[in-house]
């Protein structure tokens, strides 16, 4: 169990993590947020690479800087270090100094992913290096594994295989895996819970069920002649976000595909958006359509970004 209490970290003059509170139990978590949201900083704080300015990090009810906790947590950064001229064999040797490595499993992964053990790492492609380091991270017997942008540059076949291995190892037991990414598609069919952060603050945390009621997506077709009449006989009329905002709707996105508009609004329990749109804009078609999990996450990020720019 990871508890992050009122965590704050300043890097130079920027507040990278801003009074963040988190509660992480076991399972596979996706940590998402746009570039510079504070994902890597959070990982560095959790793994004691950085020290926090304010707040507390407790892992299994103990401070994260304790040796016992550190030996049970592994953070794989987005561009990991390896010594010059080192091979996968040397790399394994290095990590064996600090952690318990399941060598049989590691060799199995290297073989399955066709990674040469005695070839220098510098000659590996970017994707191969990533595969090698993920294999190593999965073979390290720790309770908490943090992967930062781990899937960048990996081909779909290898990615599927790695995802299967992750699910085998980290779902349905007492282990925790947190994968940070700005690319939500890469986390598809993998994470059962998501943490969304923006500007160092938490936007949302939860699983699909808890997040699915936040937004509603409508498919709308307007009859423009009707619309002109209903909006004070203006000669020129454009359907944009402001139109819906005037109706007190919290618009998150509005896209036009042909003559069909796709509108996503944030749910407000006090109002019924369906009725409001129907009464005010008299659309030809107004239909609620389901949102995918990835869409919900993206919308959360988008909404957080909009909130952030409002505050600025």
């Amino acid at each position: 169990m990871i508890e992050v209490i009122n965590l704050t970290k300043k890097l130079d003059k920027t507040i990278a993590i801003n009074h963040l509170n988190l509660f992480i139990t076991n399972g596979i978590y996706g940590l998402v947020g746009q570039n510079g949201a504070g994902k890597s900083t959070l990982f560095r704080l959790l793994s004691d690479v950085y020290s926090q300015d304010e707040g507390e990090i407790l892992i299994d009810s103990k401070p994260n800087y304790e040796k016992e906790i550190k030996s049970n947590l592994f953070f794989l950064q987005d561009d990991p270090y390896y010594a010059n001229f080192s091979t996968l064999k040397n790399l394994t040797e290095f990590y064996k100094c600090f952690y318990e490595v399941d060598e049989n499993y590691l060799n199995y992964l290297f073989k399955t992913l066709n990674l040469p053990i005695n070839k220098q790492l510098s000659s590996f492609s970017k994707g191969m290096k990533r595969q090698a380091f993920i294999s190593l991270a999965l073979s390290i017997n720790v309770k908490y594994l943090l992967l930062d942008e781990a899937f960048d540059g990996i081909d779909p076949l290898a990615l599927d295989l790695i995802k299967q291995e992750i699910i085998k190892k980290y779902s349905n037991n007492d282990k925790t895996l947190i994968i940070a990414s700005h690319n939500i598609e890469s986390l598809e069919k993998l994470c059962d819970k998501f943490i969304i952060i923006s500007n160092g603050k938490m936007v949302a945390q939860g699983d699909e069920a808890s997040m699915s009621h936040v937004f509603i997506k409508y498919q709308i077709i307007f009859n423009l002649s009707n619309l002109k009449l209903s909006t004070s006989n203006k000669l020129y009329f454009e359907i944009n976000e402001d139109l819906f905002k005037k109706l007190d709707l919290h618009v998150v996105s509005l896209n036009k595909i042909g003559s069909v508009y796709e509108l996503v609004i944030k749910v407000n329990k006090d109002i019924n958006p369906y009725e409001i749109i129907k009464d005010n804009l008299d659309p030809v078609l107004l239909e609620e359509i389901p949102l995918t999990y990835n869409e919900i996450i993206t919308l959360q990020m988008l909404d957080a970004k909009m909130d952030g720019s409002k505050h600025e």
């Binding site: 560095r44 793994s47 004691d48 690479v49 040796k67 016992e68 550190k70 030996s71 947590l73 592994f74 953070f75 950064q77 561009d79 990991p80 270090y81 100094c97 600090f98 952690y99």
Partner: peptide, 15 residues
Amino acid sequence: YSIKKADTYVQSPFK
């Protein structure tokens, strides 16, 4: 003296 090295070494379980 390198960010990559620091990430790897500083997180390692030393007392």
